[in-house]
Design a protein around this nucleic acid. Structure first.
Length: 120
DNA sequence: GCAATGACGCTCT
DNA sequence: CAGAGCGCCATTG
């Protein structure tokens, strides 16, 4: 356990309830640049029972990243839906609607605010 | 110490 | 929009 991991966990805990963040977002937040993979690796080292809301972290596609254990994917989705996060038919989350923007505690999301990036 | 693997992301097709 | 390829770095055998 390095201080880097603790930094990642701290950033994840800052994610508001009912909102999700991407691995790359967390990576940039803790100063890892675009090393999203290391964020995922750090979360992988997380104990089974933890106060860190790891389920609020998804990939840039707005989809839940599968782990070695299949059941985890379902658990993550259930926990997110319990917080109000909605999944579309493809099983993906609209980052434009539920994506957490640092510094923006509450987003009103009146229509699409950031069409530049698209949902690609 | 080298090689393979992985909770990812971006770009091209 | 979906799939495939390449790159990034830490952990593990």
């Amino acid at each position: 356990m390095q201080g880097r991991n603790a930094l990642v966990y701290a950033a994840v805990q800052r994610i508001p309830r009912g909102r999700v963040a991407t691995y790359g977002q967390i990576a940039q937040m803790v100063g890892l640049g675009g090393l999203a993979r290391q964020v995922g690796y750090a979360l992988n080292a997380l104990p089974a029972r933890t106060a860190v809301p790891w389920h609020r972290v998804i990939n840039a596609r707005g989809q839940i990243s599968l782990r070695r254990v299949i059941g985890a994917e379902i658990e993550q989705r259930i926990r997110l839906e319990a917080e109000g996060v909605r999944f579309n038919a493809a099983g993906r989350v609209s980052l434009a609607d539920f994506g957490w923007v640092a510094g923006q505690a509450q987003v009103r999301r009146r229509g699409r605010r950031r069409p530049s990036r698209g949902s690609r």
